[in-house]
């Protein structure tokens, strides 16, 4: 497990997450989580103007946190960061489900 977290940066997530990696807000609506529903229209044009709360999260950061879930020393922080950012990353669910060990880690946390 540690080997995975230190060497690779989880190659699989990147291609998928690129879809919202640009400057555009992750408000595609695919995920029914419309935290920014009311502002949706406005955001289309003024995404970068928004304060810290709406800054896009880089796909690399997300991939890094997902990898950090695998190591018990970095897990608590990764859990916190990912759950904070979950509304801003449209495909986080898909990334978590298909990345190695993530769901197992979540279940381990629960049990």
């Amino acid at each position: 497990m540690n080997m995975a977290s230190s060497t690779s940066s989880t190659p699989s997530p990147n291609p998928i997450i690129n879809s919202n990696g640009g400057s555009g807000p992750p408000s595609a609506g695919a995920s029914g989580q419309n935290s920014s529903g009311i502002l949706g229209q406005q955001q289309q044009s003024s995404g970068p103007n928004n304060p810290a709360n709406d800054t896009p999260v880089s796909p690399e950061r997300i991939a890094c946190w997902i990898t950090e879930l695998l190591s018990s020393t970095t897990r608590e922080n990764a859990l916190m960061e990912l759950s904070r950012k979950r509304e801003k990353v449209v495909d986080l669910a898909v990334l978590l489900w298909h990345s190695f060990g993530s769901v197992a880690v979540l279940l381990h946390e629960v049990m």
């Binding site: 989580q33 859990l79 759950s83 495909d91 669910a93 978590l96 489900w97 946390e109």
Partner: peptide
């Protein structure tokens, strides 16, 4: 901590693909 993990599970539960 476990609620953070549950929040991620909720994220998986609400995504149409997963």
């Amino acid at each position: 901590r476990v609620c953070n993990a549950l929040a991620l599970l909720q994220c998986i539960a609400s995504h149409p693909e997963t």
